[in-house]
């Protein structure tokens, strides 16, 4: 006898100790079961489906846990790097301004250097440069387009 059957037997014995009472109780339960089986679920309101689909269309999906985790990681890494850069520069209050100014100057020098390089490249090999840049642009656009399409694995999960 399974533990569940034992529990049921114990409950039955407690409610109806003698055979006649037990038979009467079981018969009452059988009758009740017959009546219960006749019950049915009520139909929802006629516009129920419409209401659900309207809400589905208008209410945005909440952020998933993965989205929240990614956002926290990105913010955390960014803030850590910024704080690290400031602290690595020594006294934060005194050297931060100098650090920013030197970065701007280095950036400007870099832009000028890249410009000079491109200019020299254009005067010596214009056609190959155009071909290479066009190919790189086309490859980048194709990769971007592919990344935007949902993959079957993502959809099925």
């Amino acid at each position: 006898m399974s533990p569940e059957d034992e529990t049921l037997q114990a409950m039955l014995l407690e409610l109806a100790p003698d055979d006649a009472a037990r038979a009467q109780l079981l018969e009452a339960h059988r009758q009740l079961e017959k009546d219960l089986l006749r019950l049915a679920d009520p139909a929802p309101p006629p516009d129920f489906l419409h209401q659900v689909m309207t809400r589905v269309a208008t209410e945005p999906a909440p952020m998933t846990r993965a989205d929240v985790r990614s956002a926290i990681v990105i913010i955390g890494v960014t803030v850590s790097l910024a704080v690290g850069a400031i602290l690595a520069g020594g006294d934060p209050s005194g050297t931060f301004g100098l650090l920013v100014a030197s970065l701007v100057l280095k950036l400007r020098e870099g832009v000028v250097a890249v410009g000079s390089g491109l200019s020299a490249l254009w005067t010596t090999a214009a056609m190959p440069t155009v071909v290479v840049l066009s190919a790189m642009l086309a490859a980048a656009l194709a990769a971007f387009r592919r990344a935007l399409q949902p993959s079957a694995a993502k959809v099925v999960s």
Binding site: D41, P42, P44, V56
Partner: peptide
């Protein structure tokens, strides 16, 4: 899951009575 509203409507139609009943 791919965003097909008709498919989701079919799911709602098949389960609405059970869900509303409960």
């Amino acid at each position: 899951r791919r965003g097909d509203a008709d498919a989701f409507a079919a799911l709602v139609r098949s389960l609405q009575r059970q869900v509303y009943g409960l």
